[in-house]
């Protein structure tokens, strides 16, 4: 049996008596391995049923449980407490906080309304204008390879929360939405590049990215949104200057 302390940041803005943020310690005993998400379940069952957090798939593909764990953006379900920096100490303490710089709903739940509104704004779906072919739309392996990086995004919001450009400009689309714009920009089957261009080609879009690289640092899926955004900047200039619209 091993023991570990979870230091969880609790806050309920709607609680009239105690709306302020405070840290609470919970002792957790476990055998073998423990993910942070399992630890949170343990707290909910044994100590405090009012602890709020998001989760869904428990396999790091849904992006619901992104949190700020032990000083870094992590997915709670993907994080084994043994791999954290604090695990080595004789009395390990794991700090669990909601994602910073986002509006808070309760405890570890952030308000992702803006994040998804911006995501929707860049029209993240395949748009075809020519008539559909009889069979499937074929893509060469080379074209498909371009999508490998951007399609791994699980929309957890870590990049969005970590981006100083987002902190300073609330209408900036953010790395996740722009990465998705890039994903359709390099898709050989998509035919709405002209419609999307004006949505990300402005000061609230790609030009607000100052290549700070925090998104790359934060991404739990180890994607490189900045690469996509830089690609978009070049594509925008090619089109605005040389009129290469497709």
């Amino acid at each position: 049996m091993a023991e570990i302390t979870f230091r969880v940041k609790r806050q309920d803005p709607q609680d009239k008596k105690n709306p302020e943020a405070h840290w609470e310690d919970y002792k957790i005993t476990y055998e073998g391995n423990l993910t942070v998400l399992e630890g949170l379940f343990y707290i909910q069952e044994k100590y405090d049923g009012s602890l709020a957090f998001r989760y869904c798939c428990r396999a790091s593909v849904c992006g619901s449980c992104a949190m700020y764990i032990d000083g870094a953006y992590r997915l709670a379900c993907q994080t084994n407490v043994k791999h954290l920096d604090s695990a080595g100490s004789p009395d390990p303490v794991v700090t669990v906080a909601p994602m910073p710089h986002l509006p808070l709903v309760k405890d570890l739940v952030c308000d992702m309304t803006d994040f998804f509104a911006k995501y929707e704004y860049i029209m993240p779906w395949l748009i075809r204008k020519s008539p559909d072919p009889e069979k499937e739309l074929l893509q060469s392996p080379k074209d498909r390879k371009k999508l490998d990086m951007p399609i791994d995004c699980i929309l957890c919001g870590c990049c969005y929360s970590s981006c100083p450009s987002v902190w300073g400009e609330e209408n900036y689309l953010g790395p996740a939405a722009l990465l998705k714009a890039y994903r359709f920009e390099v898709d050989s089957r998509d035919e709405a590049r002209k419609d999307r261009l004006s949505r990300w080609d402005n000061e609230r879009g790609v030009y607000r990215c100052h290549t700070i690289m925090n998104c790359v640092e934060a991404c739990p899926k180890e994607l490189v949104p900045t690469e996509g955004i830089q690609w978009l900047k070049r594509a925008a200039i090619r089109r605005r200057l040389f009129g290469r619209l497709k």
Binding site: Y73, P100, H101, P103, L104
Partner: peptide
């Protein structure tokens, strides 16, 4: 906004 960990 949640600002407890600025620069986090």
């Amino acid at each position: 906004r949640e600002t407890a960990n600025i620069g986090a």
